[in-house]
Design a protein around this nucleic acid. Structure first.
Lengths: 147, 147
DNA sequence: GCTTGACCCTATAGTGACTATAGGGTCTAG
DNA sequence: CTAGACCCTATAGTCACTATAGGGTCAAGC
């Protein structure tokens, strides 16, 4: 946490606003991506400085980190939006969020199974090359052609 | 119930030519995808019938199946092109093909590892929901927020 | 004061591997 | 002769960015 020491926002409007580059560094992403999220309506439009630079606050950083974390976990931006909407209502049923996460887990597990099968096939294909020298008597291409 | 059956067109030596739909069925893909591969230069441009329909032969089917199989194995179209080029030279060293397959295997294994870690995190997130009722005291959103 | 270079802005186009849509033409069974 | 399944082209859309072009802003060093 190399950021934000005090900054209790009482009175002073913007102690030190974050530039888009600061925000990008703090959330381990890039300015273009942040602008993209803004265009997509995932990040609220920030105020601008006199020179038209975006001026972000901690609220933006928190939300952006949430988005990035969800993306890292493989959620689509649409799912992230759902999660953000759900989380904005304190009284909403927690189960709905859980359902989303669980459904995603199933998708991930399916993908792992698929890739595991695929890896086995690739190992077999590699094995079929042993001891051959040229394409003419290599079995890889045939292994790649079904039947 | 219309079927296109075997419209014996021009005197093509190999039995009857395949329509794009036939080819799609035979390779378990779709006409649009086949046209896309043609545009991308992966499938040779086929002759046309008098009514401007594409007329494919077994050679096209073999090549298309190869492409689809490679795609199913997770190769990019660029890699598929490389494999096709390699396989066209009978005297080329087999090791190069093997290297491609091996490199791809590593990429697949990395992805499996990533997804496995991700699945574990999702399971934890789901666990953190147990016994809560509303977002207000559910820990999922916090679990999704880093730190 | 001036330059350098790192940063910021917008708008547009490109990526990969398709998918969808619009607006037609062809073929064949009933 | 018509319904509807198939074929054609061309264009735009998808997802989540990434790249490019063509500018404006700002702090540091000379």
């Amino acid at each position: 946490m190399p950021n934000r020491a005090a900054a209790s926002d009482s009175g002073v409007p913007v102690g030190s606003a974050l530039s888009i580059g600061d925000l990008a560094n703090a959330a381990e992403t890039k300015p273009v991506t942040i602008r993209y999220y803004e265009r997509m309506g995932l990040l609220p439009v920030p105020p601008r400085t006199s020179s038209n630079y975006r001026a972000y606050s901690e609220v933006h950083l928190h939300r952006l980190r949430f988005i990035r974390r969800c993306r890292d976990l493989g959620f689509t931006l649409e799912q992230v939006e759902d999660l953000l909407t759900l989380s904005s209502d304190e009284h909403r049923d927690c189960a709905e969020v859980d359902r989303l996460a669980a459904a995603h887990l199933v998708a991930v597990q399916t993908k792992i199974a698929d890739l595991t099968r695929l890896a086995e096939q690739l190992r077999q294909i590699s094995r079929s090359c042993r001891g051959r020298r040229t394409i003419a008597n290599c079995r890889i291409i045939e292994a790649l052609s079904p039947q």
